[in-house]
Design a protein around this nucleic acid. Structure first.
Lengths: 107, 107
DNA sequence: CGCTTATTTCGACATTTCTGGAATTACGGT
DNA sequence: ACCGTAATTCCAGAAATGTCGAAATAAGCG
């Protein structure tokens, strides 16, 4: 629960969401930090702070490749972050006797 | 983008995540505020603040039923919040010539 | 109307977050 | 060893967030 919340909090910032989106789109090969920066035009220190937060919660991994640092989205962590909602949907719902027009299934 | 970020930020707090989870599990019928409170044992004012934030971003709706206020998770908003990631996964990925053992598809 | 239950608003405080300039470390090439 | 590029850490200030008691508002009931 805490882990999910911290991941969501990490993504709940427009700048970090942009960063993460870029990495998600980049797929397995990932991207060097500088390449991410060039797509966002924000100061390097700001980017570094945000990347660190994404690293801390495990949504992103880094691997050094010579002078550059490759960032990749961790898809497993992404999956486990969102699974909570989709799996538990209406788990506690009481079955109603009569179904009205508004009773479309929620999931 | 901003909307998605604000929804994720709203869920990126353990207390609000618990509240939202309870409502997601409750399904279409929803739950009155007091019922949510009894499952969390937090002060009413604190709960009210968090509920307001969930309302503001559209993740939760409220409807008065006599003296009680029924809260429901908005499943459409939940869907649109998470869709971004699953849909855009590796959209920008370059197709590699050779596939190594680590090249499992990410989505 | 007055009472009770349900819920929100107000106010105030401590804590965390976001931002970015300046200095620092990391790495490879010459 | 020195230089240039890549990236992080340090620092500091402004702004937002989380918490909750006390007071206020809303709705039904006798």
């Amino acid at each position: 629960m805490d882990q999910v919340a911290s991941c969501l909090a990490a993504l709940g910032n427009v700048t970090r969401l942009r960063i993460y989106r870029i990495l998600v789109r980049a797929g397995r090969p990932g991207l060097p930090v500088a390449s991410v920066q060039s797509q966002l035009s924000i100061p390097a220190s700001t980017l570094s702070h945000h990347l660190r937060k994404l690293l801390e919660v495990g949504l992103v991994t880094q691997e050094r490749e010579g002078t550059r640092l490759i960032c990749r989205a961790d898809y497993a962590r992404m999956q486990s972050t969102f699974a909570l909602f989709l799996e538990e949907c209406c788990a506690d719902e009481q079955v109603a006797q009569s179904h009205s027009a508004n009773d479309a299934p929620c999931c």
